[in-house]
Design a binder for these strands. Sequence first.
RNA 1: GCCCCCAUAGUUCAAGGGAUAGAAUAGCAGUUUCCUAAACUGUAGAUCCAGGUUCGAGUCCUGGUGGGGGCACCA
Length: 597
Amino acid sequence: MEILSLLKEKVQTGINDLYGAEADEKQIQFQQTRKEFEGDFTLVVFPFLSISKKNPVQTANDIGTYISANVSEVESFNVVKGFLNLKFTNSFWIGFLNRIAAKTNYGIKNEGESGKTVMVEYSSPNTNKPLHLGHVRNNLLGYSVAELLKANGHKVFKVNLINDRGIHICKSMLAWQKWGNGETPESTGKKGDKLVGDYYVKFDQEYKKEIAEFIAQGLKIEEAKDKAPLILEAREMLRKWEAGDREVVELWKTMNNWVYAGFDVTYATMGVDFDKIYHESETYKLGKAIVLDGLEKGILIQKEDGSVWADLTEDGLDQKILLRADGTSVYMTQDIGTAHQRFSEFKLDNHLYVVGNEQNYHFQVLKLVLKKLGYSWADHMQHLSYGMVELPEGKMKSREGTVVDADDLIAEMIKTAKETSQELGKLDGYSDEEIVNISKMVGLGALKYFILKVDPKKTMMFNPKESIDFNGNTGPFLQYTHARIKSIIRKASDAGIEVVSEINQNILLDKKEQDLVKQIANYPSAIEEAGNNYSPAVIANYIYELAKEYNQFYHDHHIMNEVNKDVQNFRLFISSKVAAIIKSSTKLLGMEVPERM
RNA sequence: GCCCCCAUAGUUCAAGGGAUAGAAUAGCAGUUUCCUAAACUGUAGAUCCAGGUUCGAGUCCUGGUGGGGGCACCA
């Protein structure tokens, strides 16, 4: 808040006046006053004791006296130990509300306002199997972070780099060729990504059988894995693909298109989108020229077999291969190329990669290699390294059938939302269309909030046996709060009462009302903090606090029955503001909120 | 073997070096002639262990224990 910078300034001059010494800006720490104490903002005075040469209470009293005399917005102060609690005047808070009254998009900056452009890469799936819960976290995070960056005024490009080539795709293709009997999504009624995924699993099963046979014949595991006919065939298929073999390329196109159609459905239900989609089949050769250039300049090294490496041992890391002996690229080479391509194509101030923390080392190396190659923009690459989603029995493993399928999970959430609504009788008398819409909003809202409220960096736990809650600190709680407010506003409107655009300066706010107004005032800084930290969790926590405050206010105060018109106007006004903030903040999490539920 | 990350109520999550470590859920006890009880109120319950730095440590440092991830001419 603007008032905070004013306070900091006054503290500085105050300390100068009182003790004749300069206070370091960093020493001036304001925090929100805790609920159990009287006040709005609190200054921690411990850092000034060496300057004041007095005890904490005396020092706090000195500064408090100075501030309340010199800042008209400060009504009173109190001191608890080394903490100076400042209380603002009633009219300060009313004034604040009147200042934001006309703002239709309070707290949100316009995209482009900051003058910065950011690229956010997220999702980036493989085309050999359907999306699972891990991808869901990635997608929701990527989407939400992109929205947060927009809300902070940046121009944002959302991009997806689809991994549509490589040995894993060939495995699905080969299995389909051998055992598919010409099955298609149409003939089976299966989603394309599911169908292809089934053949990926089929390959693995048959491959394992071959390995087991070889081991029974006395081969070592490594050797068996390397010599199994299926893997040899898959490699041959990859070779043919790279050589442009028509039949293989045709099959590859067909099956990939099945997968894309399936992904599109999942993306659409999750509500995520992209400004641009890259395909690895088109980018995997990028980077080779850059690497060869680096070799020529002596930044990279070449081994006897002709392979090219980056030597990072001086930086405490290993050597990293960048080109194979046969001159082909590896993953890292491609990332070097795509990064270069993007920074050349767009004027990017920042490039964020939303990728799991299992790839921390990869990104560390990527940045380092790019810097060694002399690209200063490498410093503007950020890895949003998010934690894994774990199940009670540990990591999800597709081979062991413990993956939580994205489509199944979403469908389950929507179904539960519908059942819960019906049990509570919430949707009685609603049209089928409304019931479907609201169930979708609530089910997805529960899922999205559940995932996004956790700090992205942390590993999170999901227990499929316990369905995601709809009570307490949940998405539906926020939606319910919104719907309740909308209901009041409708009732008011029916009674001929509209939300006012200015509040009477003379009404007195009680404690609960002040708490609510303070939380409203925190919205812009919550958006900034969430953007700076790439953390939707910051927003999630903020909305929850806001909704909780509102529900308490709602419980204790009447609106329609309030006889004092000014007070009624005020309560209707903050209700409407809270609803607007819930709507705009949940949107940053990719959630929708219903008008009623 | 080497490197990185994590450890908070029974459980799932919060806490920019600052006050008495917050919520939710599960448990217990309540609130509906009153704008939606998917709500509200009360109650009980936690910083892995041992040292250290600091006026002050869940947060920083060292060591240990436990868990996860990475160390491929896979992507």
